[in-house]
Amino acid sequence: MSGVCLTLKDVHISLHGKALLQVNTRIEPGATLTVMGPSGIGKSSLLAYVAGFLASDFSASGEIFLGERCLNSLPAEQRGIGLLFQDPLLFPQLSVAQNLLFAVPRHVSHRQQQVDQALEAVGLKGFGDRDPATLSGGQKARVALQRLLLSQPKAVLLDEPFSRLDAHLRQDIRQHVFQTLRDAALPTILVTHDVDDAAASGGSVIELS
């Protein structure tokens, strides 16, 4: 699988006139850039800017490229950028399979089959009809990742996705996520304040202060 690069060109973000951060970088397919720093520094606003829903209180400049394509003028849903939040956020009104089906683009053929395969790939075969509220924390995290992949993103943002997991699960899920994203050749930005996350990602690190 061959991916494209995610490029952040002179990205500046400020809040009410106070500069928060500036980033100028290029992330290769399958590589992970880790952004670290204390809370309140604007790490999450960087992700919001790249994803396309930065709150109007912030002002930001700089260009975002996926391969040769500039994303700045595109709305979030057309950017091809997937996002994992701190919580798995499985839609509570949909079944597990419906959660996945919601993510599969319409033009894809055999959508249902894709969903079944995605469940099977993480050992959740037969869980499709379940209420997401009945899954364990680890299962939810896996479903959330599969859902992200089914939406066929070109790049991925991770917003402290392991911080709410129990310690014994964290290691496992972390390995699983990074391995999966590497195999899919997706450029990734990880925001975290956990040094273990940064180490496990195996990529370069930017420290904000």
Binding site: E77, F91, S151
Partner: peptide
């Protein structure tokens, strides 16, 4: 935001996600 990153338009998000919630 999640629905948007999964490629759903604001209208689709409203019908499938916000309305039920």
């Amino acid at each position: 935001q999640l629905a948007a990153t999964l490629g759903a338009s604001p209208n689709r998000t409203w019908w499938h996600i916000k309305l039920p919630l």
